[in-house]
């Protein structure tokens, strides 16, 4: 069973049939660096309890969109709203109690241990004064367990493999225990098994009611593990909807310039592309 017939691109910003009210919404945001605009009047509403994948070629603006959703980049116009309130009107630590962000690149101080890194995830909940005491709490333990790095807790980051280190960073984001999780290319540095572990973890977090928005490079992983796929190109949303509606030969050609067939994944039934 193939569906290689070209299908037209779905219209932009089709509201997805997802449960729950929007928890995080970009409302006509224009975002740029210095004199280059990356996003222009872009809108995206993310429903609570869903997993959304942002896909697109390099330079399409997906990381910029994620940074704007995380209030790391302030929009020049428009607003990102959390439960209807513009992020700029909320204290930054209050936002951090609701939204956790795993950026694409970060630096760890020399000699830091996994536990010390994960403890930083407690900063928004405990506050800077309480953070002056070194304490472990249940949230840290949960985050270490869920990412499979509990046995590495007292190791220095410098002594870990790239994948172990990446999981420690994810543990830090989970330790924030927010209801929204933003991940910028979380599978980078991970081997295949740990990529799948991570994506399954994302699925479980979603099932528990967390809202996840992640930038993914692997379209097949996006189709398989996200409820909704949003494709960007040159700062605009060009396709948005359920994986079946977005991962199509027409989109692959139009957005990624790949000539491909799309078949249902034999395990999940989600669309899976194979280059021709």
């Amino acid at each position: 069973m193939t569906s290689s017939l070209p299908t037209p691109l779905p219209p932009p910003s089709t509201p997805p049939s997802t449960p729950g009210a929007p928890v995080l919404a970009a409302d006509r945001i224009t975002v740029g660096y210095r004199d280059a605009l990356v996003l222009e009047a872009l809108s995206l509403a993310v429903a609570a309890g869903t997993a959304t994948a942002l896909v697109g070629p390099n330079g399409s603006g997906k990381s910029t969109l994620l940074a704007a959703l995380a209030r790391v980049l302030a929009p020049r116009s428009g607003a990102v709203r959390l439960d209807g309130t513009p992020l700029r009107d909320l204290p930054t630590r209050a936002v951090a109690r609701r939204i956790a962000l795993l950026p694409q690149t970060s630096t760890a101080p020399p000699g830091a241990t996994v536990r010390e890194l994960v403890e930083q995830g407690r900063y928004p909940q405990r506050g800077p004064w309480a953070m002056l005491r070194r304490t472990d709490d249940a949230a840290m333990e949960r985050a270490l367990e869920r990412t499979g790095v509990a046995h590495l807790a007292d190791r220095r980051l410098a002594t870990l493999s790239g994948g172990e280190r990446q999981r420690a960073w994810i543990a830090m984001a989970l330790a924030q225990e927010t209801d929204v999780l933003l991940l910028d290319e979380p599978t980078t540095y991970l081997d295949v098994r740990h990529q799948l572990d991570l994506l399954r973890l994302v699925g479980r977090l979603r099932d528990e009611g967390m809202t996840v928005v992640m930038v993914l490079h692997d379209l097949n992983q996006a189709a398989r593990y996200a409820d909704r796929v949003v494709a960007l190109r040159e700062g605009r949303i060009v396709a948005d909807g359920a994986p079946e509606a977005v991962v199509t030969p027409a989109l692959l050609r139009g957005v990624f310039e790949i000539d491909a067939v799309v078949v249902p994944d034999p395990v999940s039934g989600r669309p899976h592309f194979v280059e021709r």
Binding site: I99, L101, S106, T107
Partner: peptide
């Protein structure tokens, strides 16, 4: 120390 982006994300 975790970088400006991560730090801002932490509040």
């Amino acid at each position: 120390a975790l970088g400006e982006t991560t730090a801002v994300g932490l509040g």
